[in-house]
Structure formats: C-alpha cells, structure tokens
Amino acid sequence: MARPGTRLDSKKVNSELFTLTYGALVSQLMRDYENVDDVNKQLERMGYNIGVRLIEDYLAKTGSGRCYDFRDTAEKIQTGFRLYLGITPVITNWSPAGDEFSLQFDSSPLTEFVELPDHCLGLKYCNVLTGVLRGACEMVQLDITSMFVQDHLKGDSITELRIKFIKRLEDAIPAGED
C-alpha cells in the first residue's frame, strides 16, 4: 500500500486519468462517426492495435509459455485483466466442447463514472477489449473472437464477455526459409 502523498508506483497510472481519457476518446469517436456501429468497429480496431503490442509486455512480465489447452488460455487472459486493468473477472459458462467461455465482471476502470444516454444503446462502450483480446491472441497463433453478451452499462447486473476459440494459426514461414 502506498502511503498517501508518496509517489505512485512508477509502473502504474492513476485509474481516473485512464478512465477519463478512455471516456474522452469514446465521446470523440461518437462525434466523429455518424453511427454507433462505426464507433464499435473503430474501438475494436484500436483495441486490436493495442493487443498486438500488449502481448509482448504480457509475455515479458509473466514469463508464461505456451497454453496447453483453451482452459489454460482462459486463465492467462484472466491474468491479463488483473495485470492491466486491476480486475479479476470470473471464468464461467464453458461450452460443452470447451471452445467457448465467458468472463464476468461487475466494474472495470473503463466504465467507472459512465452512464449511457438512451441514444447510445447500440454503443459497445468497452468494445476496445474485444479488439485487445483478438490482437493479443493473434500474435500467439490463436484465432479467437469475442463479444459482449451482457453489459452492466445497459442495465444488466454484470458485464459478460463471451470468448470463442476459432482456430490455431499456423506459423507462416517466409518463402525460401526453412
């Protein structure tokens, strides 16, 4: 615990600054695009760019190796949430085939202070997260997709992110190399 007045951990940032910066970004997108679908897409795309870079940081910090199965992946994604957002979502609702699961959490630094106006019902406020997961997993040869099936901001009691395994990506070896 940091004593009041002492320097924050230099590897950490005040979460309100993060929350409000994300909020300002989303509202800027809402002003720039005509419909919310485009905003959702743009958020996903930004998330993808973040994920592609964040995975390096994740591997360096956790030193984790390959996943044995998708359950292992789920735990590693959970660790990622803890590491980068300071929340620990619950892993639940596995599909019988074991290729689909949900992450549930009630609050996150992204949505602190946020209330959605009625005309933004189609907005997936946290859609950046689906992009981050897609980008990060793609860099470790996992093709996944994810979507919000429940959203705290839309009156659901909890936020639920459903994550689905699609396929393993094969390493593409540049032509002429073994």
């Binding site: 940032v13 910066t21 957002l85 300071g86 602190e112 009156g155």
Partner: peptide, 28 residues
C-alpha cells in the same frame, strides 16, 4: 431508462487511489 440500478451518484465517491498498469495507459 437504461440507467443501471445504482447510478454513480448513489455510490460514495472513491478515494481516487485506484491504479492501472502504465502500459495500459500508454498504449491507449
């Protein structure tokens, strides 16, 4: 209509000591 059951005004104000990872903020 869509307001969550507890609005932000129902909650007490946090102390503002929450933190996120620097990398998260930097990439955003």
């Amino acid at each position: 209509q869509v307001r969550p059951k507890t609005s932000i005004l129902d909650k007490s104000l946090s102390k503002g000591r929450g933190e996120v990872n620097l990398s998260t903020f930097a990439l955003l």
